[in-house]
Design a binder for these strands. Structure first.
Lengths: 159, 159
DNA sequence: TATGCAATATATTGCGCAATAGATTGCATA
DNA sequence: TATGCAATCTATTGCGCAATATATTGCATA
């Protein structure tokens, strides 16, 4: 049946490739983290990492640091409580806020992450692709936050 | 409360930034696609695009072209059938296979995508970040498929 | 003090993807 | 023909995230 010779990649699917890379990494990184002794769920590692610096933080604090919605942070909390990586306590000065801290286990885990264990690996990968991957990604995010795709689209079409 | 001054980004979270970029784009692109007259769900556009070249394809054909699992492709099918963008028919020569084709609407939609409507926008964005974003992403994916993170990790630690 | 808005947190629903298991058909070959 | 394996498709469950709605507390100010 018309099996195709993998047609040429089109320049319209940057989003797809970004997703593909993110998912590829989150899969491949699981055994690596396991070998490193990291028990934190992969997608919660950045949360644990920032808590290592903040010591105490509310959902909104964490959301701002991680550039994510506070609702999303909230969804990760129950599992981290179960795993005894974080604890929570009420803010005595603001009854709306709940403060989260790392447990001893959490601090140990954050300590591993703080050593930047993937540094060399990503650096080598960056050399292979000819650009600093993380810098490119961060720059792209920043540029799109400053001027979104719809604005760019309109600018290209208003002449 | 210990509100932090946005601590320095660490080099260990390439996966997170790839995810962030992918999600940012898939959000920002919705109004753009709408303005272009694209009715296909954002995450199914690449599927419709390749069907425009294949004309007829099974789940496995599509999965290979898109570098995704056939199960995932399958999950997108019902919605595309509802929207009357694709149709399906049994392969007369192989009763295991179901063949999918574009409808008239689907071909019209694929026609829009074929014009590479985001080309200029992504090119400008690439200039702003100082590297061809799509090339970097594709190269990173390819390198990781050839040698995964766990292998790289072990190579860094066996000396 | 009472009113209204802001900040924070919680709950629910839906989408996209991964992972696994299971069913059917095709095909080679004993 | 009968057996077993491969290819294809289907179904189910769980995770992560978005989007929206709702509730509670804090705070400014009329």
């Amino acid at each position: 049946m018309s099996r195709s010779p993998q047609q040429p990649p089109q320049r319209s699917f940057v989003g797809k490739y970004a997703d593909d890379l993110g998912q590829l990494i989150s899969q491949q990184i699981k055994p690596v983290y396991k070998a490193m002794g990291i028990q934190v769920p992969v997608k919660s590692c950045s949360l644990v990492h920032v808590l290592g610096y903040l010591h105490q933080a509310s959902l909104v604090d964490l959301a701002k640091c991680l550039n994510q919605s506070h609702q999303l942070i909230k969804q990760k909390i129950p599992r981290l409580l179960e795993l005894k990586i974080i604890t929570h306590s009420k803010d005595p000065h603001d009854k709306r806020r709940t403060l989260y801290q790392l447990t001893d286990l959490g601090r140990q885990q954050a300590g591993i992450l703080k050593q930047n264990p993937m540094e060399q690996i990503y650096q080598q990968l960056s050399e292979e692709v000819g650009a600093d991957i993380q810098s490119v990604l961060m720059a792209a995010i920043e540029q799109l936050q400053q001027k979104d795709l719809y604005t760019r689209y309109n600018e290209h079409n208003e002449y």
